[in-house]
């Protein structure tokens, strides 16, 4: 599996801005084709959600996507099988909640991710205080645990988070749950600067980044952008792999 940190660093250092679209695993029959389509449209990595019944950091769109996936009977291993089958040429990171990892067992989950060719994991309800048992297994299996920095994170925490982060640092653009927003808010520059002071890892910004114009604005200060709800909403509305590719292509064009 591709190394998330090396891949993203190499692309950034070549002058490219990083684009990481988010998809909900298992939401439709053709979601692995959607994964392939967004890669072809210019994604540098893809974030794939493993649905959880109680997604406390997600807004209505991702909630609905998770519910739709669970209603179809999706279990975590099916999402991993879909990722493995897609044979993505760029790194894939899964995003899920800690109970899914805890229930499987840290070692078993880390091995399952590696076996599926997954490069990274984002577990937003697992703060640095609680991360060690998981991180030890993830590191051992070569899974990069991506950590989030929020506008509320004081500088000393940002330093500790950056020291423990692998792959890239996920900068939370605003104090909010996931979802589309009309603007980027006022916290973006501050958060990115705090992270930049602590690490030279790639910094990608997510939460509320909804349009090509916003993605371009983000990339003026950060290394890249994560776009979730704006893409997932289109998929919920019935757009398939082609529609997803068109939207991701428009983001790619905007950030170059």
């Amino acid at each position: 599996m591709p190394d998330l940190d090396k891949e993203l660093r190499a692309r950034r250092d070549s002058g490219r801005k990083l684009l990481i679209p988010y998809l909900m695993g298992g939401m439709t029959d053709d979601w692995p084709q959607t994964l392939a389509a967004v890669v072809a449209a210019g994604a540098d990595a893809v974030e794939v959600g493993i649905p959880f019944s109680d997604p406390i950091i997600d807004g209505p769109v991702i909630q609905e996507a998770g519910l739709r996936s669970l209603t179809r009977g999706t279990v975590p291993q099916e999402v991993l099988d879909g990722i493995a089958g897609a044979e993505s040429p760029v790194p894939v990171a899964v995003m899920t909640y800690y109970n899914i990892v805890f229930r499987a067992g840290h070692k078993r989950m880390a091995r399952s991710l590696a076996a599926a060719g997954v490069s990274g994991a984002i577990i937003p309800d697992l703060p640095i205080e609680e991360i060690d048992p998981w991180a030890a297994e993830a590191d051992g299996a070569g899974i990069a645990t991506v950590l989030l920095v929020a506008p509320s994170s004081p500088p000393d925490r940002v330093e500790r988070i950056c020291a423990r982060a692998r792959g890239f640092v996920y900068a939370v653009a605003r104090m909010a749950v996931t979802g589309e927003r009309g603007d980027l808010g006022n916290d973006l520059t501050k958060v990115v600067e705090r992270i930049r002071n602590c690490t030279d890892m790639p910094i990608c910004v997510g939460i509320g980044v909804s349009t090509p114009a916003q993605a371009a604005e983000v990339c003026e200060v950060a290394d890249g952008v994560v776009v979730g709800s704006a893409l997932v909403r289109r998929l919920l509305e019935g757009e398939g792999p082609d529609g997803a590719a068109a939207f991701v292509g428009s983001l790619r064009d905007a950030i170059s």
């Binding site: 800690y98 703060p127 920095v149 509320s152 994170s153 939370v172």
Partner: peptide, 20 residues
């Protein structure tokens, strides 16, 4: 200090809420 009663408890919240 980690908020544990024996093995149970802790703080499993998004980073945004950890400072609070």
């Amino acid at each position: 200090a980690d908020g544990r009663f024996g093995e149970f408890g802790g703080r499993f919240v998004p980073e945004a809420l950890m400072p609070a």
